[in-house]
Amino acid sequence: MRINVVGTSGSGKSTFARRLADTLGVPYIELDRLYWRANWQGTPDAAFMTRIAETLRAAPDGWVLDGNYNRTREVKWREVDTIIWLDYGFGRTLYQAVKRAIARAVSQQELWPGTGNRESLRQSFFSRESIVWWTIKTWRSNRRRYQADMTNPLFSHLHFVRLRSPAEARNYLRSLTSPAGCSTLKQ
């Protein structure tokens, strides 16, 4: 299986994608980890696309890819067979984004090893790069884009799974460990 987990920042993509990868016994790949360098510097697009392609090729037996990065679609969706969209309501997504931002600012955990990148309350709530503001700004446009993608003939070769609540996501993961196994991915 080659799966891309997508959804607005704060929807729980990383947590869900890690659990899914563990359940399926395939590598977990985080686009943020491939993109972010030290001091919150992003990787230039050409190098980013190359890193994605090389990372996906390095796991020929399948993987779970975590992240949106709309501009990477041509590279990542060329390899993917399933898109799992965490489409939670705005209130739930915003709540999770705020809760995560506070937890990360308080813990000061390094987000991606070797980068030194840590979130702060100032950065998370009062800067132009605020992840909370990003969630507010992109929730509606992400929803429109993924709804359109599900019916776009260009993506008819992809299997879309739309999960609308944390309970649906938990049930979906549970279903993968049932006797029917991974056949749920093809529903």
Results as ranks from 00 to 15, higher is better:
R71W: 06
N142C: 15
Y88H: 08
A103Q: 08
R144V: 08
I102A: 01
F90T: 09
L121Y: 05
S130R: 05
D81M: 07
L121Q: 06
E79D: 13
S130A: 09
R143I: 07
I131C: 13
L154W: 13
N117Q: 04
T135L: 11
D87N: 07
R73I: 05
Q109M: 06
L111G: 00
W139N: 12
A148N: 15
I136N: 06
L111Q: 03
W112V: 12
K137E: 15
Q108T: 05
N117A: 08
F155R: 08
T82G: 04
R92H: 14
Y146W: 15
R100E: 02
I83A: 02
Y146N: 12
R71Q: 12
Y88N: 03
K76F: 04
T115H: 06
D87I: 03
R118D: 06
N142R: 14
R145N: 15
Y88A: 01
F155D: 04
W77H: 09
R144G: 10
T115S: 06
K137W: 13
R92T: 13
A105I: 00
K76S: 12
Q123A: 11
T82A: 03
E119I: 02
E119D: 09
I136R: 10
Q147W: 05
I84E: 01
W133F: 14
R143M: 12
T138H: 15
T93V: 11
F126H: 03
F90M: 11
L158P: 08
F125Y: 07
S141D: 13
G116H: 05
R118C: 12
L94C: 09
L111N: 00
D149S: 14
W77S: 06
R144A: 11
A97F: 03
L111F: 07
F90E: 03
R78G: 07
W139C: 10
G91N: 12
K76Y: 05
A97P: 04
W139A: 09
H157Y: 12
K137P: 07
A148F: 11
M150W: 04
I102Y: 05
N117H: 03
S130P: 06
R143P: 09
N117L: 03
W133Q: 13
V132E: 12
F160S: 01
V75S: 06
N117V: 05
I131N: 06
R122W: 09
D81V: 06
Q109N: 12
